Amino acid sequence: MTRRSPYPYWFFAPAAVIYTALFLLPTVAAFWFALTRWDLYTATFIGLDNFRQFLAEPFLISGMSNTLIYAVTTSGLKTVLGLLLAVLLTSGLYAQGFLRTVVFFPVLVSTIGVGLTFTALMHPTKGAINVALELVGIDGPGWLTNPTLALFSVALVDLWKGVGLATLIYIAGLASISPEYYEAARIDGATRRQMFWRVTVPLVRPATITVITLSLIGGLRSFDLIWAMTKGGPGFSSDVLASTIYKQYQAGFYGLSTAGNVILFLMIALIILPLTLWFNRREVDA
């Protein structure tokens, strides 16, 4: 019996070292520190007390629901709008190369910079958006001061910033579709709408899975844009789980905030892993 040489496996070693140092060890450390009351110098084991206290936070339920609403809203809008923009930008439109750049450019801009800019634009009285609406006789709302609108206003800004990446993924997916499928559909008398629903949408399924997964993960762990624009306000109306965790950290409850991070990690895993398995099973069945 011939023994396989271990030589090929050595090429995995650098990636394994980096993955262990930057992901596995910090993850294990986070789970440990979540069970302690710690500061920069000492750590006292207290078991599950941090988790009990964090789950007893009065605004945790609203933070969790806001997190889910924000993630589903941004993910759904990026998926739909990203596909429509990708179809438009691959249809031979005039200056489509320039338009692709315009759509993708916000992805490259600093999230904090985007948040501060739109905070000024959405000011209820001095913001450019409401000033423009006032010129056409519309009384603009308090985008970030109305508890009902604040979370969705931030979600729209997130859509503006992130839809370019979804569009780019869909453009790559559309480029992989053979023109023969469209030619066959055209010969069968299919309209453009029918070709979109029966050819384009099914064949860009891998791109759709990628966009939904990345957008959901980004939405569930979103913090910087929300903090830059509303800091979870007004009140707690736009608080998400990540901002709740940060507020605990600001108050000096390091163990409590670490427990919150573990809860957020488990929440993302419990949503993304079953969803990924379901997508993969559907793809195999198809």
Rank of each mutant, 00 (worst) to 15 (best):
T42H: 09
D285F: 08
F12D: 10
L68E: 00
A120Q: 13
M267R: 06
R281F: 12
T67E: 04
A242L: 04
L203Y: 04
I209V: 15
F253H: 15
L84Y: 08
S178N: 14
I226R: 02
T2W: 14
A269C: 12
N50D: 06
L81F: 11
A172T: 06
F45A: 06
A30R: 01
G142Y: 04
I129M: 10
T167L: 04
S238E: 03
Y94F: 14
G127T: 02
S153A: 09
P8S: 04
G252H: 10
K78D: 04
V199H: 02
W143Q: 00
V154R: 00
L25I: 15
G137S: 09
L273A: 13
L256N: 04
S91K: 14
A34G: 08
T119C: 12
R282M: 09
G142I: 05
L151T: 07
Y181N: 07
L275C: 03
L108E: 05
F23M: 11
L241C: 09
Q96E: 14
F152K: 05
A185E: 03
G173E: 06
L270S: 12
W160K: 02
S178D: 13
V211N: 02
Y182V: 02
L99S: 09
Q53R: 13
T200L: 00
Y70W: 02
R205M: 11
L203W: 01
W38H: 09
P147D: 04
S110Y: 07
V201A: 05
I138N: 07
Y9T: 15
V114I: 10
L225K: 01
R4T: 08
I61D: 15
R192C: 09
A150P: 00
L151P: 01
L85P: 03
R52V: 07
V103M: 00
L24H: 10
L133Q: 01
L135R: 14
T210W: 11
V28A: 13
L121M: 15
S91N: 10
W278Y: 14
A15I: 12
A43Y: 07
P206D: 10
R192H: 10
V211I: 06
Y182L: 04
A190P: 03
A30I: 04
A13Q: 12
F265A: 11
L81A: 10
L83Y: 03
W32C: 12
A228P: 00
A95F: 15
V131P: 04
Y254I: 08
L264Q: 07
V204C: 03
T191Q: 05
I268V: 15
I171M: 09
L159M: 12
I268K: 03
R3D: 08
R186M: 10
A16H: 13
Y254Q: 09
I169G: 00
A21S: 09
A43K: 06
V87T: 13
N146C: 05
V157R: 02
I138D: 12
I61L: 15
L135W: 15
K231S: 14
L264F: 07
V154M: 01
G219E: 01
G189M: 06
V107K: 07
Y249I: 11
L256P: 01
